[in-house]
Simulated scan of single mutants.
Amino acid sequence: MTDQALSRDHFRKRRSLSERFSEMDEKIKNPSFRKATGKANEVNYWVFDYAPEQEMEVRSHIQWLQNRNRKGFDDYQLVVFDLYDLIIDELKTKGFLEKTEKLEERGGIHRVVKAVQRTLRITDKDNYLVQYITDHTPDNSIVLLCGIGKCYPLLEAPEVFNKVLYNMPQKFASTPIILFYPGTYTEQELVVFNEVVEDSYYRAFRIAR
Rank of each mutant, 00 (worst) to 15 (best):
L91T: 02
R203A: 08
R118M: 04
Y128Q: 02
R121E: 05
D89V: 01
D139T: 13
L83R: 10
R59L: 10
Y166T: 02
C146L: 04
G147Y: 03
G149F: 00
H61A: 06
H136W: 08
F33P: 00
T119E: 11
Q77T: 15
V192M: 02
E189A: 06
V197M: 04
E42G: 14
L91V: 03
M56C: 02
K102A: 15
T186W: 11
A204F: 10
F180W: 09
Q77S: 15
D49A: 01
E159N: 05
S60C: 07
K71C: 05
Y128M: 05
Y45V: 04
Q77C: 13
H110R: 14
V79I: 15
P182D: 04
T93V: 02
T137G: 11
V112A: 03
F96T: 01
R8Y: 06
E101G: 05
N167V: 01
R206C: 14
V191M: 04
P182N: 04
P31G: 12
H61D: 08
D74R: 12
D75F: 14
R8A: 14
P138V: 13
L190W: 08
V143S: 00
K35R: 14
E23N: 06
G95I: 05
T184L: 03
I178S: 01
S60W: 02
T184S: 10
V196F: 11
L17C: 11
F33C: 04
Q63I: 08
H61G: 05
N44Y: 12
Y50V: 06
Y185T: 05
L86A: 05
L17R: 10
D25K: 12
E195Q: 07
G107H: 13
K27I: 15
E198N: 01
L144K: 06
L83P: 11
Y76C: 08
V130F: 06
K102M: 12
V192D: 00
S141Y: 10
V43E: 11
E195T: 06
L83E: 10
V191F: 07
E101K: 12
I178T: 03
S200D: 08
E159Y: 05
